[in-house]
């Protein structure tokens, strides 16, 4: 099987856009020049569309064989806006725009619409494994022979969701985060010194450090890698990181990453790994609220 390569990585966080790790000036009006196409977009849609368009800008539309997106909670701002209008207007004379834009696949659909991309377009919404699900699908698409797949993840903080997540105790260890990340995946051209996706594993439910370490050793083994050689990007808490590092006798110090919490933070961790790890094999260990866990094994070509 041909390696699955990540040839571009874009990130939009707090209005700062980075492309392959380098900051780029960013003006949404330039990316979407037509005002009539911008006017209905909420904040999260703008974040996602901007990041996705930037990531796909070098690719002709007909060379993009798929757009696969992920979001934990989707377009929350519009969801709340429409819910509020139902209550306030007592189910009468409601503006349809927030309802339309609240749909989970809005960002993937908007990118397709703006660029005229008629290919595969699917959105995953599975808590802390939303991005991993999208990555599995995108990697499989490339393995099945498709050309460029645009892969993205977007989540936003709203005042209401911040209050609810705080009350649910989800912000005890980390502040809430948000962001948009997009990647281009395709079949590798040899000798391009780029990151490849080697293996992905996802788990739901509680997982002890011992069980996690075993999963890592199994994954390393089936891919012919010594677990101790891995460069770990730790998108999990420090205690787990230390414990895993000990159990695996890691030769390299893990790169700590997790500074905030949101459902698709692992997409940011992937961007971080691409831009900061120089090792041959990098493993991103992600943990969302102790209930969703994932391992993303990267290689280099």
């Amino acid at each position: 099987m041909k390696p699955i390569t990540i040839t571009k990585s874009c990130q939009l966080k707090a209005d700062v856009l980075t492309v392959n790790g380098c900051e780029e000036p960013f003006d949404f009006k330039e990316l979407v020049a037509d005002a009539s196409l911008r006017r209905r977009m909420s904040r999260i849609v703008k974040m996602g569309v901007a990041c996705g368009l930037k990531c796909a800008e070098d690719l002709p539309s007909d060379s993009i064989d798929g757009i696969v997106t992920a979001t934990g909670l989707g377009c929350l701002g519009d969801t709340e806006k429409f819910m509020e209008s139902i209550v306030v207007n007592n189910e009468r004379l409601l503006n349809p725009t927030p309802f339309i834009q609240s749909t989970f696949n809005t960002i993937g659909g908007q990118i397709a619409l703006l660029r005229g991309i008629h290919s595969y377009n699917v959105t995953y919404v599975h808590r802390g494994l939303s991005f991993e699900s999208a990555l599995i699908d995108a990697a499989m698409q490339v393995a099945e022979g498709r050309r460029n797949i645009l892969l993205g993840a977007v989540d936003e903080i709203t005042a209401s969701s911040a209050d609810i997540q705080r009350r649910l105790g989800m912000t005890r260890d980390y502040e809430l985060g948000e962001g948009a990340n997009f990647f281009v995946l395709n079949a590798a051209t040899p000798g391009s010194n780029q990151t490849t996706v080697v293996d992905i594993d996802t788990r739901s439910g509680k997982l002890t450090d011992d069980e996690l370490s075993k999963l890592i050793i199994e994954m390393a083994k089936r891919n012919g890698i010594n677990a101790s050689d891995l460069c770990v990007v730790a998108n999990c808490n420090a205690a787990t990181t230390d414990s895993v590092a000990n159990r695996l006798s890691l030769k390299n110090k893990p790169l700590p990453f997790k500074t905030c919490e949101y459902h698709t933070l692992s997409a940011q961790a992937l961007d971080f790994a691409i831009n900061n790890s120089t090792a041959n094999n990098t493993l991103i260990i992600s943990d969302y609220q102790g209930i969703n866990h994932s391992l993303i094994l990267l290689g280099r070509i």
């Binding site: 989970f104 993937g108 959105t123 995953y124 919404v125 599975h126 494994l129 939303s130 739901s204």
Partner: peptide
């Protein structure tokens, strides 16, 4: 969240392996 219904189905059906949620 959409993933919640999927996790609850998995729990009731004793499915411990891969699961995900699609929303298009």
């Amino acid at each position: 969240d959409c993933g919640s219904s999927t996790e609850l189905i998995a729990k009731c059906l004793h499915i411990t392996g891969f699961r995900t949620t699609v929303s298009t």
